[in-house]
């Protein structure tokens, strides 16, 4: 018996911005289910497809391509890959439940993209005389690094409308909400004013600025 076909969800867009003719992961045509003023973009995929498991890298890159094609022209709220809906009715039910949240989210990020700056904090210079001193040393270096980044971001206004940061393994990641079309200006300003010790990436969909997302503000 053939495995059941599910709907692989890519992103939510406003119903006024539904793109046409996209090819999804595994070659299925991307379709939209609209309800409550938003639309969910999906494509059919067999439940047992290796693109969802052993070939997940390939599947994820194909999903990224779909999202990028949509995101190039529209505001999107993305789903984590792979998010599978059982059938179209499950998507409609989800939109009935969460449509309002998605509309608010899309309004909040409208016309913006997310740029990210990663500042590695090398720990080879940390004080290793004891566990406590090591942690204190890393924390101190982290605070100094974040302060430097904040200063740098302040010089990038008005391009960076909002910013959040997160302490993660190996360094700090700063998320900046930047108006569409200003991402290159933002990147150039950062790269020209910094000492090159950080990595800038983007534009990404501004997922860190949705109401429910909460990168810590360490």
């Amino acid at each position: 018996m053939a495995p059941p076909v599910r709907s692989l969800a890519y992103c939510i867009v406003s119903t006024t911005e539904i793109p046409q003719g996209l090819v999804g992961v595994g070659g299925g045509e991307v379709f939209s289910i609209a309800s409550e003023g938003v639309a969910c973009l999906c494509s059919p995929i067999e439940e047992g497809s290796s693109l969802l498991s052993s070939r997940v890298k390939e599947g994820a890159l194909a999903a990224y391509k779909v999202i990028q094609d949509v995101f190039a022209e529209n505001d999107v709220i993305t789903f984590r890959f792979p998010t599978l809906f059982v059938d179209e009715e499950a998507i409609r039910a989800h939109l009935r439940e969460k449509g309002n949240d998605y509309r608010e989210g899309l309004a909040r990020i409208a016309g913006h993209v997310q740029m990210e700056v990663f500042l590695p904090i090398a720990d080879e210079k940390a004080d290793r005389s004891s566990g406590t001193s090591y942690l204190k040393s890393v924390q101190k270096r982290g605070k100094a690094a974040k302060s430097g980044l904040d200063e740098l971001l302040a010089r990038c206004r008005p391009e960076a409308r909002d910013a959040k940061s997160r302490h993660e393994k190996g360094g700090f990641r700063v998320y900046a909400l930047v108006p569409r079309g200003c991402d290159m200006v933002f990147r150039r300003k950062l790269e020209s004013q910094g000492d090159g010790a950080f990595r800038v990436s983007g534009p990404w969909p501004p997922m860190a600025f949705l109401p429910e997302s909460d990168p810590d503000t360490a």
């Binding site: 994820a60 890159l61 789903f79 984590r80 969460k98 997922m207």
Partner: peptide, 16 residues
């Protein structure tokens, strides 16, 4: 860049 992309697709985004 590939790792950044994979990180975003696999770790960022709405979890229903």
């Amino acid at each position: 860049s590939l790792l950044e992309i994979l990180d975003h697709v696999l770790n960022a985004g709405v979890v229903v």
